[in-house]
Amino acid sequence: HFTSQQLQELEATFQRNRYPDMSTREEIAVWTNLTEARVRVWFKNRRAKWR
């Protein structure tokens, strides 16, 4: 589960860029205190939901 702060950060990034690269995902991981893998999976799932 994600905190509302984490989701806000993830959503804001998603609005700007639906396909963040590795370095962007790592930055998000640092800001949100999540692993890069969790961030990558979140984006994958979010893109699926967005379609």
Score class of each variant (00 low, 15 high):
H1T: 11
H1I: 11
H1K: 13
H1F: 11
H1G: 12
H1Q: 13
H1P: 13
H1A: 12
F2L: 14
F2A: 03
F2S: 03
F2R: 02
F2P: 05
F2C: 07
T3W: 05
T3A: 04
T3F: 04
T3E: 04
T3H: 05
T3I: 04
T3Y: 04
T3V: 03
T3M: 04
T3Q: 04
S4H: 13
S4M: 12
S4F: 13
S4C: 15
S4D: 11
S4W: 14
S4R: 14
S4V: 13
Q5L: 11
Q5D: 10
Q5P: 06
Q5W: 15
Q5V: 10
Q6A: 06
Q6E: 04
Q6P: 02
Q6F: 13
Q6G: 01
Q6D: 00
Q6R: 03
Q6H: 04
Q6Y: 03
Q6C: 05
L7Y: 07
L7T: 07
L7M: 08
L7E: 10
L7K: 07
L7R: 07
L7C: 08
L7Q: 07
L7G: 03
Q8E: 12
Q8L: 12
Q8R: 13
Q8F: 11
Q8K: 13
Q8Y: 11
Q8S: 10
Q8N: 10
E9Q: 15
E9Y: 15
E9H: 14
E9P: 02
E9N: 11
E9T: 15
L10I: 02
L10E: 00
L10Q: 00
L10Y: 01
L10M: 05
L10A: 02
L10P: 00
L10N: 00
E11C: 07
E11K: 03
E11T: 02
E11D: 03
E11W: 05
E11H: 03
E11R: 03
A12N: 10
A12P: 02
A12Q: 10
T13V: 15
T13S: 15
T13A: 15
T13K: 09
T13E: 15
F14A: 01
F14W: 05
F14Q: 01
F14Y: 06
F14M: 03
F14I: 01
F14H: 03
Q15E: 09
Q15Y: 07
Q15N: 08
Q15G: 07
Q15R: 10
Q15V: 08
Q15C: 10
Q15K: 11
R16S: 09
R16Q: 11
R16D: 06
R16E: 09
R16L: 10
N17Q: 06
N17I: 09
N17Y: 06
N17G: 05
N17R: 03
N17L: 07
N17A: 05
N17F: 06
R18V: 05
R18Y: 06
R18Q: 13
R18M: 14
Y19I: 03
Y19K: 04
Y19M: 05
Y19E: 04
Y19G: 01
Y19A: 04
Y19T: 05
Y19L: 03
Y19Q: 05
P20T: 01
P20E: 03
P20I: 02
P20R: 01
P20M: 03
P20F: 03
D21F: 03
D21R: 05
D21T: 09
D21E: 04
D21P: 06
D21S: 10
M22K: 15
M22F: 14
M22E: 08
M22R: 15
M22H: 11
M22Q: 12
S23I: 11
S23K: 15
S23D: 08
T24G: 05
T24S: 08
T24E: 14
T24M: 13
T24Y: 07
R25M: 09
R25D: 02
R25I: 14
R25F: 07
R25W: 04
R25Y: 07
E26C: 14
E26A: 11
E26F: 11
E26N: 12
E26W: 10
E26S: 10
E26D: 06
E26P: 03
E26V: 14
E27C: 14
E27S: 10
E27Y: 10
E27I: 12
E27W: 10
E27R: 13
E27F: 11
E27A: 13
E27T: 10
E27K: 13
I28D: 00
I28W: 02
I28E: 01
I28V: 07
A29F: 02
A29W: 04
A29P: 02
A29D: 02
A29M: 03
A29L: 02
V30N: 12
V30Y: 13
V30A: 14
V30Q: 13
V30T: 12
W31P: 01
W31C: 08
W31G: 09
W31F: 14
W31V: 15
T32R: 01
T32S: 06
T32N: 07
T32A: 07
T32E: 02
N33R: 07
N33K: 10
N33Q: 10
N33D: 09
N33I: 04
N33M: 07
N33G: 15
N33L: 06
L34R: 02
L34K: 04
L34S: 13
L34W: 05
L34C: 06
T35C: 06
T35W: 04
T35H: 04
T35M: 03
T35Y: 02
T35I: 04
T35V: 04
T35R: 03
E36Y: 02
E36K: 03
E36M: 05
E36D: 02
E36T: 05
E36R: 02
E36P: 07
A37Q: 13
A37L: 14
A37R: 11
A37C: 08
A37G: 08
R38I: 15
R38P: 01
R38S: 12
R38K: 13
R38Y: 10
R38D: 15
V39Y: 02
V39P: 00
V39C: 01
V39M: 01
V39S: 00
R40C: 06
R40G: 05
R40I: 04
R40Q: 06
R40T: 06
R40W: 05
V41S: 12
V41P: 00
V41A: 14
V41E: 14
V41T: 12
W42Q: 03
W42F: 04
W42H: 00
W42N: 00
W42S: 00
W42I: 01
W42T: 00
F43V: 01
F43A: 00
F43D: 00
F43L: 02
F43S: 00
F43K: 00
F43T: 00
F43W: 03
K44M: 11
K44R: 11
K44W: 09
K44V: 11
K44A: 10
K44D: 06
N45T: 09
N45F: 13
N45A: 13
N45W: 15
N45R: 13
N45I: 14
R46A: 06
R46E: 06
R46T: 03
R46H: 04
R47I: 06
R47D: 01
R47W: 04
R47Y: 05
A48H: 09
A48W: 07
A48S: 08
A48K: 14
A48F: 08
K49E: 14
K49W: 09
K49M: 10
K49V: 12
K49Y: 09
W50G: 07
W50T: 07
W50Y: 08
W50I: 07
W50H: 07
W50F: 09
W50P: 06
R51C: 11
R51S: 08
R51L: 14
R51T: 09
